[in-house]
Design a protein around this nucleic acid. Sequence first.
DNA 1: CACCATGTTCCTTG
DNA 2: CCAAGGAACATGGT
Length: 299
Amino acid sequence: MPELPEVETLVRGLQWLIGQKIDTARVHRERVIRPTSRAALRKALIGATFDGVTRRGKYILFHMKAKEPACDFILLGHLGMTGRMYRLTAKASLPKHAAIVLKLSKDRFVFEDTRYFGRFTLELAPLAELGPEPLSEDFTIENFGELLSGSAQPIKVKLLDQKMVAGLGNIYASEALFRAFISPSLPARKLTKQQVAALHAAIRQVLDQAIKSATRFQLDFGGKANQNRLFYFGTEAGSNSDSEQLQVYDREGKPCVRCHTKIQRIVQAGRSTFFCPHCQARDRHTRKREWLQRQDSNL
DNA sequence: CACCATGTTCCTTG
DNA sequence: CCAAGGAACATGGT
């Protein structure tokens, strides 16, 4: 379930952990705890109590209280592509791909991850590499523009770099560029000041909107219903009244919501990018003005 | 069978 | 040293 909005939503849903003490810790897949050893992780976790659950980029920070106060520590979680975290009752059966199971006083906490790309570790080094939180004051147009100015990489590819904006992923990178009327293949350093500002705003808007839409309905993190879809996917969950959910992602060949041109899919750095070739034309100036004028004349 | 998938990291090449 | 591209990781859906 991975980009920033999903992680943020999950973190909010994991606040029940606070105050819970760990009785037993089982590591079913050693891969997800690397480079921490099984012994070291169990030693730290058993007897420790959850003191807080927060987010940084796509990472989940479990703030733990150890038996001796001087030994309080942070446990770092990451969902990878397919990770899920949820509460499971004592008698419920474990999912096929349970990677970590923590026995609490009553229920259990499960980290399930079919592809095992996720993390559950004491190694905090990855946090040091992250760029600003897009929804905080740290994410400024000036700083963003500065970071973009040095790079010849296509802007879409650059946006996936976690040093640029922590938490942006493949879906919302496409969505933000569409909303900002910017071609995904435009070299980062070629963005005009206006484009940098528009993209900065679009990133915030798209992430903020996704988080808000998730709070509008009940999410069932452990349930079957969400097994193979992100919570914003599909029609059953959230995408009714607030039409504007995902406007380009996974919509290849479908009409652009603004101009009805067919959405295109291209591959950049090995990942799919979706965009409207008309709204996000690479050449000339902005199609935005054109679009705004049409909106005006329609009123 | 082929190709696709929300992410990160490592390796090679230039 | 850096940038860019590709493969790897591991499993499942279509």
